[in-house]
Amino acid sequence: MSSYQTVRAGAKQVVKLLEKFPEEPFKYLVSFKTTQLERFSRIAGLPISQKDSSELSNKASIDTIKDVVNRTSGPLGLQKDMLKKMQAAIPHDQFSETSMKEQVNALSNLVGNKYKTYYDVGDKLYKPAGNPEYYQRIIDDIQGKKKENILDGLRTVFMGR
């Protein structure tokens, strides 16, 4: 198998792992999952899914930026030295077989929670004796399961529970 085919197969593995990657609980301007799906789908030669393309439709893609920078000698009135700096800053996806294997390995470790299970901490840290429900309340609040009203919040601050 040639190097190009190996990199392409690795990119397909990365795309499959990224599809298993959980959604981010907070919506930001740029999503890790969405940007990496776009990047590795392009390398693997796969189409970008409709959901991902709708999120990216109102943002300029890397390909669009590359096209604008490479198409003209001085886009948008930029000086030559600024144009050279922009061209140097544009990422070039040139993966080798080893770097693609490292990408697949790192992402599979993240998806599989390898380090959470490898460095498992006991209940002593998750449920401290002074306030055993502390972390569970924070997680519930982040996930929107249980909201505290102002009186419960004040009681927690003053009483410690």
Rank of each mutant, 00 (worst) to 15 (best):
L56Q: 03
S73H: 11
R161L: 09
Q94H: 13
A44N: 04
L17C: 07
Q36T: 00
Q5L: 14
K66Y: 08
L18K: 01
G77N: 05
A129D: 13
A11L: 06
D123M: 10
G122C: 00
K51P: 04
A88P: 05
R8H: 01
K16S: 15
Q136S: 10
K33A: 04
K84V: 10
D52M: 00
K146E: 13
I90A: 04
F158R: 10
G130R: 12
G122H: 08
I139T: 10
E55I: 07
Q13N: 13
S57R: 05
S57I: 10
G74T: 10
L125S: 05
M1I: 12
I150W: 14
Q143R: 13
E38V: 03
V69R: 03
I48G: 00
A88F: 08
V121W: 09
S41R: 01
G74C: 06
D93M: 07
Q13K: 15
Q87A: 11
Q5T: 05
G112A: 08
T156F: 12
P47V: 02
Y4F: 15
S99V: 00
Y126M: 14
Q87R: 13
S31R: 03
Q79M: 09
G74L: 07
T34M: 04
N58V: 08
Y134M: 13
E23K: 15
D141E: 15
S31M: 03
I138W: 12
S61A: 00
I62F: 12
T64R: 11
V68P: 11
I43K: 01
Y115W: 13
P128W: 02
F26T: 11
Q5N: 15
S108L: 05
S57E: 12
L29F: 14
G10S: 09
V69W: 01
G112Q: 10
I65H: 06
E24F: 06
G112H: 09
A11M: 04
Y118Q: 15
L37A: 01
L83D: 01
T72N: 15
T35Y: 12
L56C: 01
S31Y: 07
V69L: 14
Y135I: 12
I62W: 06
Q5A: 10
I150L: 15
S41Y: 01
K16D: 14
S57P: 02
T72M: 15
K59D: 04
F158Y: 11
N70C: 08
F21I: 00
A9Y: 09
L56Y: 02
D152T: 10
K33W: 05
D67V: 06
M1Y: 12
L125F: 13
L18T: 03
N58Y: 11
A44K: 08
V30E: 11
E38W: 04
E102V: 00
D141W: 14
I90L: 14
R39I: 04
K59F: 06
F95W: 07
V14G: 00
G160Q: 04
M86N: 11
L29C: 07
T35I: 05
